[in-house]
Design a protein around this nucleic acid. Structure first.
Lengths: 340, 340
DNA sequence: TAGCGAGACTAGCACGTGCTAGTATCCTGT
DNA sequence: ACAGGATACTAGCACGTGCTAGTCTCGCTA
């Protein structure tokens, strides 16, 4: 059959088309695609073959509408946070096995978090994962009363909202202890107040400094989230004459910006100053090789997904708070202080 | 009315719930949410108020199912490519105004491109945007026969598939000409064969070298896509005794990896070697300040979306090839060669 | 008082699928 | 030969919405 008709995009094939081609009922096709039993192997084969030839794929909207639950898990995340580069693939991996599907909604200037979440709700996601959310806890409360929610790397309490976060306090504590053990006394922390999780990391810094009786040496520089913020922090160190012997950063992106700024000014790392990051995203690049606190994306994703799916399947399942590992990884951006 | 029933997530409210609360028909609610006329202002107000109180939002699956077209535009992209950090927000921005909605599908090891696209087709997207696709042209052909497709930063020809790409050949040509004008003769190119667009950038390098009669000086190092690949390329330069006086990289991520590797080995940039990137993603960070070829995400996104939507709305609209600007931005990673 | 049109609203089907409740057909045992 | 049960398949409703084709009410005109 020659196609002489003007080029047109075929409208998508449906189960009914497949059924018609094979000469069976639409319901039988449905059974085959749901892997239900009660279908003879040979007709199942014929149906699958016909579906392939017609390029059939199930209409997710229709499935979501008819099924008990959409089988969607919505994810609102900010792509300018380097940790999401590992986290989203890990979420894909963790989700697939459970028969759920991920719906992504990216947060950016043109698409603020509130709008991203509205979209996920519009898709009738069975559960939501909010990554480093910056919503007010009032709004977070509203949302988590209407559907199961897990917040990753933003702790909230008193809410019906699961929390999965790396134990930033412990991680930074370990980092500072490592530095004091090396002999450092002047240790600064580059803080990122806009990142909700920062408070725990900052607390870990303060606790470790206190433990070593270095309260008087506490230096906190406030900065933003990403690389340019680290560069600004670096500028502050350079302009003041007092340069600490070590700096702990609230995340890797800040550490990267800081290191490059210092390196450009001719300061040797780690000889003149030791630097530690957090996340182990860019830090692990062989050419950077930064000492950092490793936060495991797979661990975060699996904890978040399994808690969320448990709550989707059973409303009585509790909205727990899970802290995943945050362990110091020693690489080459740290050493003993020079003038010991 | 006190709520003493055991805590349960409300099942999502529908138009019918809103209608019941106000005491009108479901259809009237539908009219209000579609901003159709024929509704009295006061009832429209009552309906909107009730919807707000009930937390109603339209079910996108039902809309997509019933409407003529889902009003979704599907995007398959790879988040480990730094250019997507700017591109996706730009796509959100370009899409909103046309009444379409973006559906994202991220490509990663756990979620290969083929699966990402199947998912978008499952959502019955009215059109697809493939970013730096690595599909075979055979598969690309199949897909573009079934629905409008625009390929960003991967050129294909002879297919019913729109193409929007930055003019990498011209950009790299300009970069190399700038270097030769400065007096450079030994100019290497770090190539990324897996990136389909690379061939045009490589051709631009070769053309510019030929124009300056530097054919015999052509040095091409093959590398991968991201930062670590640049580091490997740097290692190659360091191990060989012949170091070019300038290097042009196929993208910024490679340039970053290269620069850091060289800097670590004590090589000064740009004093000993000039480096140019492509994309202007990380290059523009003030602390890096790399000379690079700027590719405009907004330009790419707007061209892609407007061509795609034109083809969605009118099948006869042609699948054009659009080359967006790629212009050299001179910053501080380039200078005259040392021994001129 | 009948006719008419406009404004405000509603009835009912359709989209493509999942699921419950069926109905044929064949095989088995007595 | 016939009940009984398994196997293979189908009928029909429902999900929440968009859209076409209505219906009803009211005021105005002749």
């Amino acid at each position: 059959m020659k196609e002489k008709a003007p080029r047109k995009f075929k409208s998508a094939t449906t189960m009914a088309d497949v059924a018609a081609k094979v000469g069976v009922s639409r319901q039988l096709v449905s059974l085959v695609f749901r892997n239900a039993n009660g279908v003879s192997p040979q007709t199942a084969l014929k149906i699958r073959k016909a579906a392939l030839e017609l390029g059939y794929s199930p209409n997710l909207a229709a499935q979501s509408l008819r099924r008990d639950g959409s089988k969607y898990i919505g994810v609102a995340y900010n792509s300018s946070h380097s940790s999401s580069i590992d986290l989203i693939p890990a979420l894909y991996r963790a989700t697939g096995a459970h028969g759920f599907r991920l719906v992504l909604s990216m947060i950016s200037t043109n698409h603020p978090e509130e709008r991203a979440i509205e979209e996920l709700i519009g898709h009738r996601c069975d559960g939501l994962i909010l990554v480093s959310s910056e919503l007010s806890s009032k709004r977070l409360k509203e949302i988590s009363e209407n559907s199961p929610v897990v917040s990753i790397n933003r702790r909230v309490s008193g809410l019906r909202c699961g929390v999965v976060s790396s134990d930033g306090g412990a991680g930074i504590f370990e980092a500072v202890e490592y530095l004091t053990a090396l002999g450092h006394k002047s240790i600064a922390y580059v803080s990122t107040p806009e990142m909700m999780e920062n408070q725990f990391r900052l607390a870990g810094y303060e606790a470790a400094m206190a433990k070593s009786n270095l309260n008087s040496q506490i230096i906190v520089i406030e900065s933003g989230y990403i690389e340019s913020a680290g560069a600004i922090a670096g500028g502050i160190f350079l302009s003041k004459k007092i340069m600490p012997s070590a700096v702990v950063c609230s995340n890797d992106q800040v550490a990267l910006g800081l290191i490059l700024t210092l390196a450009k000014a001719g300061i040797k790392i780690p000889n003149q100053i030791s630097v530690i990051g957090f996340d182990d995203t860019v830090a692990r690049f062989p050419f950077l090789d930064l000492t950092t606190v490793h936060q495991d994306a797979v661990e975060l994703a699996e904890a978040a997904i399994s808690n969320l799916i448990a709550r989707i399947n059973n409303e009585k399942s509790p909205a727990t708070e899970i802290l995943t590992s945050a362990k110091l990884v020693i690489r080459s951006s740290t050493s003993k202080p020079r003038s010991n």
